[in-house]
Amino acid sequence: MIVSSDIVPVESPLRICHLFTSQETGGLEKHVQEQCQWQLESTDAEIFVIAHPRYRAMFPEGVRFLPMNTDRSRRNPVLNLALLRQLRRYRIDLVHAHGGKPAHLLWNLRRFLRARVVITRHNRHHPKDKIARHFEHRIAVSLKTVANSSLDWTIIPNGTRLPSAGEHHCDQVDCNRAVVISVARLVPAKGVDVLLRAWCRAQVNSAVLYILGDGPERAALEALAAELNLEESVRFMGYQRQVADWYRAADLTVIASRYEGGPYTVAEALLAGCPVVSTDVGYVAENIPAQYLVQIEDVPALAVRLTAALGDVERLRGEFAPYIARARNRLTLEAMAGETWKVYLRALSGD
């Protein structure tokens, strides 16, 4: 256990608050959730979260969840005042702002805050440094998210912890055919339409593509699969609670996203020992062989990569072996959260 009071001469226990203003659920929210879990387990700090009430159920017992209507504008005086009151009321020592809007809110309140601030950039939707330059302690989840930044950033890739293996997928998988999975919410950003068109072009032999996830685009994507005559080789499985079991069963994971911060999918797949073909989003290029990377929305190139990957699965696994080994050191929850905690300690010590 990391005992914060043994390292930083501040009032014990430390009070750490995570702030995010999301309206959906994805990688950023998972990032905050897992950071909180690790901090509860591994430090003596008190952990708080300020977010919209819809996220309350995500956080484990022990996290102090402070609900707030964060859907208001970042310039809304009611939101700014409510945030300042909560940070003061609970005497927060350090607030971790996840994303551009939370950073902007803390910048609004900078003259009134006693807490130290750490910000994390999760994606490229906020590529300008106008707000970030006012904060000394900056984290980015990949080199790509800050490729156009002139500031210094601490790069800490998203890591995670896979649950123990189960057998929840076994009655849904055709074990006599190669198993390919795509784990994605069915929204345009995830590029499942691109994947279906590439799958139609690729020489996949008898492989089956299992699409794990749900969302508003499901009906349209199922119609597209039917239009492309993919009923025999593509199966829409809906939301799957035990995704880790699917990674362990799969011969290949495919990411066709148009944009991502992490994405967590590549970390989860590699930690489970599953190779990945992906578009060049987030930190994927830093973590898989270049020959399995394609440009965004490049259907022909994705089809070629799929054909190559499924043409020799044993070679594929051999090429991924060093990347999987590195991921098991670099893309774990312990690695991510431990490096984040070091940034906290630097901020609290005034370095």
Results as ranks from 00 to 15, higher is better:
residue 249 A to E: 04
residue 221 L to V: 10
residue 226 A to Y: 05
residue 176 N to V: 15
residue 245 D to H: 04
residue 213 G to H: 00
residue 176 N to S: 15
residue 180 V to W: 00
residue 186 L to V: 04
residue 241 R to M: 14
residue 232 E to N: 13
residue 231 E to Q: 12
residue 251 D to Q: 09
residue 210 Y to P: 02
residue 173 V to P: 04
residue 254 V to C: 06
residue 257 S to Q: 08
residue 238 G to T: 05
residue 260 E to F: 04
residue 198 A to T: 07
residue 230 L to Y: 00
residue 244 A to G: 12
residue 185 R to F: 08
residue 180 V to M: 06
residue 257 S to K: 03
residue 220 A to Q: 12
residue 207 A to C: 08
residue 185 R to C: 11
residue 234 V to L: 09
residue 189 A to W: 00
residue 210 Y to S: 07
residue 177 R to W: 11
residue 256 A to E: 02
residue 233 S to P: 03
residue 229 N to Q: 09
residue 214 D to F: 03
residue 240 Q to F: 02
residue 198 A to C: 11
residue 209 L to I: 10
residue 191 G to P: 08
residue 214 D to L: 05
residue 191 G to S: 14
residue 237 M to G: 08
residue 241 R to Y: 14
residue 259 Y to G: 07
residue 182 S to M: 10
residue 259 Y to I: 09
residue 184 A to D: 05
residue 232 E to Q: 13
residue 250 A to L: 10
residue 244 A to L: 05
residue 219 A to N: 12
residue 227 E to D: 12
residue 249 A to P: 01
residue 197 R to F: 09
residue 224 L to I: 07
residue 235 R to M: 06
residue 239 Y to T: 11
residue 243 V to R: 00
residue 219 A to H: 14
residue 243 V to K: 00
residue 182 S to D: 12
residue 202 A to K: 01
residue 212 L to W: 05
residue 196 L to R: 01
residue 204 V to D: 00
residue 239 Y to N: 07
residue 207 A to T: 04
residue 233 S to A: 05
residue 246 W to N: 02
residue 220 A to R: 10
residue 254 V to Y: 01
residue 257 S to W: 02
residue 197 R to I: 12
residue 232 E to F: 09
residue 219 A to G: 11
residue 241 R to G: 13
residue 177 R to P: 08
residue 216 P to H: 14
residue 224 L to M: 08
residue 223 A to M: 04
residue 244 A to M: 09
residue 237 M to N: 11
residue 259 Y to W: 14
residue 245 D to Q: 06
residue 208 V to N: 01
residue 260 E to K: 02
residue 259 Y to V: 11
residue 205 N to C: 13
residue 231 E to C: 07
residue 226 A to L: 13
residue 224 L to V: 08
residue 202 A to L: 10
residue 253 T to A: 12
residue 227 E to F: 03
residue 184 A to Y: 00
residue 253 T to C: 13
residue 257 S to T: 12
residue 233 S to N: 05
residue 245 D to N: 07
residue 255 I to E: 01
residue 245 D to I: 06
residue 241 R to L: 15
residue 192 V to M: 06
residue 228 L to Y: 06
residue 222 E to G: 05
residue 241 R to K: 15
residue 190 K to L: 10
residue 191 G to E: 10
residue 223 A to D: 07
residue 184 A to E: 04
residue 220 A to L: 11
residue 191 G to D: 09
residue 248 R to Y: 07
residue 222 E to W: 06
residue 183 V to G: 06
residue 186 L to D: 00
residue 195 L to F: 05
residue 239 Y to A: 10
residue 190 K to P: 04
